[in-house]
């Protein structure tokens, strides 16, 4: 076992892990941050996306020891300090961008990365950016719409409900 230390959601976090412990497992099992989900084992589904040093990564495809010293942000830190939803989260609720909620943490983390790099993405840019995030419920319609709305674009004419 190795002791690993990192900053998670702004607070110091540490724990004893095996070499093979994934960052996703460390977050879920050691820190009880169960908002980061594991939906596949081949790095496709993106339910586990977190931010490591400001970049979106798949926490199920990164060893916990590789995050030593890193600044990690998970879905649990994405709301405002008073618990209210931030713009992206609110857009997902307003536009029904989630159903079962399982892929949602990864979607929010990816959407936030996208809008940081590209504040006004086109529909095609949003769709391609989500290549690593699979949703089985929504058919993506309302996810794409929510992300575009969160970027301040008028989505009322995009497609009929």
């Amino acid at each position: 076992m190795t002791e690993v230390k990192m900053t998670v959601n702004g607070k110091p976090a540490s724990g004893a892990v095996e070499g093979r412990t994934l960052l996703a497992s460390f977050l879920r099992d050691n820190l009880s941050l169960t908002g980061t989900h594991i939906g596949c084992d081949t790095s496709q589904c993106g339910a586990c996306v977190v931010h490591v040093n400001g970049e979106a990564v798949k926490a199920c495809t990164m060893l916990a020891v590789e995050a030593e010293g890193a600044d990690v942000k998970t879905i649990e830190s994405m709301a405002n300090p008073d618990g209210s939803l931030t713009v992206i989260q609110q857009a997902f609720q307003d536009h029904h961008g989630l159903q079962c909620g399982f892929c949602t943490p990864g979607m929010i983390m990816s959407a936030s990365s996208l809008l940081k790099d590209n504040p006004k993405p086109t529909e095609a840019e949003v769709r391609h950016y989500l290549d690593g995030n699979i949703c089985r419920c929504t058919g993506y319609h309302n996810i794409v719409k929510a992300i575009m709305a969160a970027s301040g674009q008028d989505v009322s004419a995009l497609a009929a409900e």
């Binding site: 970049e55 979106a56 495809t61 690593g132």
Partner: peptide, 9 residues
Amino acid sequence: IGDPAVRNR
């Protein structure tokens, strides 16, 4: 290559 999260690692 892959997707954005894969490209970051």
